[in-house]
Amino acid sequence: MIAMTNEELKIKLTEFLPTITFEEGGEWLNVFVTPRELRSFVQKIRTSEDVLFDYLFCLTCVDWKTHFNIVYHFSSTTYRHNFVLKVKIDRANPEIETVSDIWRTAEMLEREVYDLFGVKFLNHPDLRRLIMPDDWQGWPLRKDYEDAINMIKL
């Protein structure tokens, strides 16, 4: 059970999906996948005996003003290697397939991202506001969110 190095992982993950791109820098391997190929790719990394990424420990979104990055941090409880998966999605119409049927923890994490960024997770079993009130307008963690009452400009 030896953890793969980033270089080995790079080769292995390219085997699963040749169209993935990598981003340099950071402690862990950063992988970019297009939204359309996300489902088939994550199913492979979850089930493949060679990598077995069974632990999704962080799922979040970064608002880059021009687009959203959905960031998945994966870990393997068998091999102990980690990698970061990023999916670039359209900001005007943010939609992405859910992974909550593969990692159950994603159900709540995706609801949180939906609540704070307004990203729609397709085929999510129960996509509702989680933290904000049900009738809240706007998506608070977006960079252009303005709230004259609750936010104080420093």
Binding site: G26, E27, F57, C58
Partner: peptide
């Protein structure tokens, strides 16, 4: 860049990204 650090709190794994 992007930095991630995980530590073990009393409740479990805390990650700062």
């Amino acid at each position: 860049g992007e930095f991630y650090q995980r530590v073990e709190t009393a409740r479990g794994e805390l990650g700062v990204y």
